[in-house]
């Protein structure tokens, strides 16, 4: 555990207001974006972010630094809260809704490389997008992503390489 996380954990255990503020500002955006990726609904994502942060504040004593970083522990809670929110509303992830919006934005933006990558990612499956998100947006190592997603790290490494090749192919084909 790095020094910043150790300090934050100490503050949270003391139920300090500063600890709540730093955690919300540091990890809130990562929780929200993962929730939005999984639920596809901004309202649900706000609710999930709030629930997940409250769980983090309440259960900080059960965080074990030997099992992974604070970020991966928090994102695991966020993932569970998103799944619970979806079950509560008895519906499947709204990936298509989100994907369509992003695809439209991407096509309006023209054949820029970055926009092509965004469109290519948006065209991937829910699990693939989750892997890309945790690896590239949250900068988590594969071992910790494996812990969050409940999949072996070796399997994720293979999937990630396939995804890279897939996105590369899309860009090369569109670039021609």
């Amino acid at each position: 555990m790095d020094n910043e996380d150790a300090y934050l954990v100490t503050l949270l255990k003391q139920e300090s207001a500063e600890g709540f503020r730093i955690t919300s500002l540091t990890y809130g955006p990562a929780i929200y974006s993962l929730a939005l990726l999984l639920t596809g609904n901004p309202e649900d994502s706000r609710e999930v972010t709030s629930d997940a942060l409250m769980q983090v504040f309440r259960n900080i004593d059960s965080f074990n630094p030997d099992k992974g970083s604070l970020k991966s522990w928090i994102l695991k809670i966020a993932r569970n809260c998103s799944v619970t929110a979806l079950r509560r509303r008895k519906r499947k992830p709204l990936m298509t809704e989100l994907t369509e919006n992003i695809s439209e934005e991407a096509s309006d933006a023209g054949p820029d490389e970055s926009e092509m990558i965004k469109a290519a990612i948006a065209g991937c499956s829910a699990d693939e997008q989750q892997l890309i998100h945790l690896y590239y947006y949250d900068d988590l190592p594969l071992a910790e992503i494996a812990e969050i997603m409940g999949v072996r790290a070796a399997t994720l490494a293979v999937r990630l390489q396939r995804l890279r090749n897939k996105i590369k192919r899309i860009i090369l084909n569109n670039g021609r």
């Binding site: 974006s33 706000r46 942060l53």
Partner: peptide, 19 residues
């Protein structure tokens, strides 16, 4: 990926309100 999500993220006020 960062551009894709940062544009959709709520403001700091939302996260501070949770705290």
């Amino acid at each position: 990926e960062k551009e894709r999500w940062e544009a959709q993220c709520p403001s700091d006020d939302f996260f501070l309100s949770i705290a």
